[in-house]
């Protein structure tokens, strides 16, 4: 059995088998196989496994009932929020005009952030539909944090702000910026706050943005990109962010 065998070139032989190496390396792997009994046996096992998979393992087809259900679901889904809407552009101009007068942080929205804000708000709206808010339901940060282990390639900072009246409800995986991100779910009165977190270098102070009745605050710290989004009033959401950042 090949479990008892070892040769440092086993993965090279497998890469040759999978056609993952260039011709010169493939020739090297092949000539190695002729000399190495371990790799010859291993190659036979690779062939047996492939033979079994490709001959016998069914590649399932989506049932018609699923196709029908999807067609119905897609037809009734929340319409996608249009990118770079006029409303948004006017918002940008408005913010630019207000910049001189306002002592608060200036909202600077790059085209990338337009897209990201669309995605953030869409993700938040979608999560509010029944059964979608949390994949792990726990008010205990020591339960939520380990739940993310193995599901993400980074460890999101999980904090409970129950004493600050922003209790943690749980967490889930979400998809933003073409990657899997952590979403922490908090509550304030009857409002839900989603905090999306994924790694990105750099530090930036919080910036506020609003979109279709939702407010968002974006900042970066400790190599993480963070977006808080909610239907809370802007000032309350900023307070959430302030307390979150102040909590160790």
């Amino acid at each position: 059995m090949i479990t008892d065998m070892d040769c440092e070139k086993l993965l090279l032989v497998q890469a040759e088998f999978d056609g993952e190496i260039d011709a010169a390396d493939a020739v090297r792997a092949m000539s190695h196989r002729q000399e190495c009994a371990i790799c010859r046996a291993a190659y036979a096992d690779l062939e047996a496994a492939r033979h079994l998979m490709r001959d016998d393992a069914p590649r399932y087809r989506a049932p018609d009932s699923l196709r029908r259900a999807l067609a119905a679901g897609l037809a009734t889904r929340t319409p996608a929020i249009p990118r770079k809407s006029t409303l948004w552009r006017e918002g940008g101009i408005f913010a630019a005009g207000m910049a001189i007068a306002a002592a608060i942080t200036l909202m600077i929205v790059t085209p990338e952030q337009h897209d990201m804000l669309d995605q953030i708000v869409a993700g938040h709206v979608r999560a509010l539909q029944p059964g979608h808010l949390q994949d792990v339901v726990s008010t205990d940060q020591h339960t939520v944090k380990p739940w993310f282990d193995g599901k993400l390639d980074f460890a999101p900072p999980v904090k409970d702000l129950a004493t600050d009246s922003f209790p943690l409800l749980g967490g889930r995986l979400d998809y933003l910026d073409e990657r899997t991100v952590a979403a922490l779910v908090y509550r304030h009165d009857k409002h839900v706050i989603d905090l999306f977190i994924w790694p990105e270098n750099g530090n930036a102070t919080p910036q506020n943005a609003g979109h279709h009745g939702y407010n968002a605050v974006h900042w970066r710290e400790n190599g993480m990109n963070l977006w808080a989004v909610s239907d809370l009033e802007g000032a309350e959401l900023q307070e959430f962010v302030r307390r979150w950042r102040a909590t160790p």
Binding site: T78, D115, L176
Partner: peptide, 19 residues
């Protein structure tokens, strides 16, 4: 599998603008 694909496709539709 039905449930997972339904959920996944609807999520994909939501994020399609960012794809």
């Amino acid at each position: 599998a039905d449930d997972v694909v339904q959920e996944a496709v609807l999520r994909a539709a939501t994020y399609f603008t960012g794809f």
